[in-house]
């Protein structure tokens, strides 16, 4: 019984980390589907979100939920701004050039955060309504911090699903990701779709940042979690939104179990080994669709 509990606990903490990976991976996939660009700055957007919510909560004494809302709005705005000022002028340029630009942005954001007064290179934490609260069922003790991540992510996924399924804008975004030319013919403004994609991706990054901060704390290098979300997105097949979440969960659970049961050092590479294994057998990821470009 104890062993079962232990495994359950480990899996649960894996699921909650996996949800954050999934959120970051969603950001990757959204931008990739719309613009074919891999956004290397997605992890840094998460970090920025975490720092902003930290400032709101500890410096300006905002309640947690208000801070969450303000951060999401701010990050959405930041994403739009980024798209308008930098990325829009690159539409139609080679994709790799744009990828390098996102790498430049990630360097820039990480260093700028370290230069802002009150942020710097230290590690911070903040109080949330879930701190130090636990749910007990029998032998099983689950921290509310972990549960909150799972619940908020689930809610978010439902909202996103509804958005893409039932709204006109969501449909326009799906159409653009399938065929930009046809979308233009149908009267969809592709540039506006791009802009909106960056807004949503940045906002998702912001939420991921808030959710992750109680677990890893807030520091300038927390954006490197983006490197873990990468295999998550690929595992799911880079073009699939549910795939990103499933991929995140698989990576999170594997990591958690490997960290607990395997010798030191396996935790960081278990996810990669699984990823390479999956890719060797299924080159397009678990949920991906084999792309065949016409010649």
């Amino acid at each position: 019984m104890e062993l079962v509990n232990e495994i359950l606990q480990t899996v649960l903490s894996g699921i909650s980390i996996g949800c954050v990976y999934g959120l970051v991976a969603l950001g990757f996939v959204l931008i990739f589907k719309a613009t074919e660009v891999i956004n290397f700055a997605q992890g840094e957007l998460l970090m920025l979100g975490a720092f902003i919510s930290y400032s709101l909560i500890t410096m300006l004494n905002f309640p947690y939920w208000t801070a969450l809302l303000v951060t999401v709005i701010f990050m959405g705005f930041f994403g739009t701004l980024l798209e308008r000022t930098v990325l829009r002028s690159l539409v139609g340029e080679p994709v790799y050039a744009i990828v390098i630009v996102t790498i430049g942005i990630s360097f820039f954001l990480r260093s700028v955060v370290s230069m802002v007064p009150g942020w710097g290179t230290d590690t911070y934490g903040f109080q949330t309504p879930f701190t130090e609260k636990f749910v007990r069922t029998g032998e099983l003790v689950v921290s509310w911090e972990y549960l909150a991540i799972v619940l908020i992510t689930t809610a978010l996924i439902l909202v996103l699903f509804a958005f893409f399924r039932f709204t006109r804008v969501g449909t326009a975004m799906r159409a653009t990701s399938q065929n930009q030319l046809a979308a233009v013919y149908m009267g969809i403004s592709v540039t506006r779709v791009f802009s909106l994609t960056w807004t949503i991706a940045a906002a998702l990054g912001g939420i991921g940042g808030i959710l992750l901060s109680p677990i890893t704390f807030v520091h300038m290098n927390m954006g490197f979690i983006g490197l873990k979300a990468f295999p998550a997105a690929v595992l799911g097949g880079f073009g699939s939104l549910p795939g990103a979440i499933v991929g995140g969960l698989i990576i999170g659970i594997t990591e958690s179990l490997a960290g607990f049961y395997l010798p030191e050092g396996w935790k960081d590479i278990a996810a990669w080994i699984i990823l390479i294994g999956v890719l060797v057998i299924r080159p397009q990821g678990l949920f991906g669709i084999q792309e065949k470009k016409k010649v």
Partner: peptide, 27 residues
């Protein structure tokens, strides 16, 4: 104030990468 920041060099470096690519996407 800016001079003494350790983050200054990577920040400018990142910024310049962005600017170079904006100015000349072909490298």
């Amino acid at each position: 104030y800016i001079q003494n920041q350790t983050g200054l060099e990577p920040a400018l470096f990142g910024l310049l990468i962005v600017l170079v690519m904006l100015f000349e996407p072909m490298g």
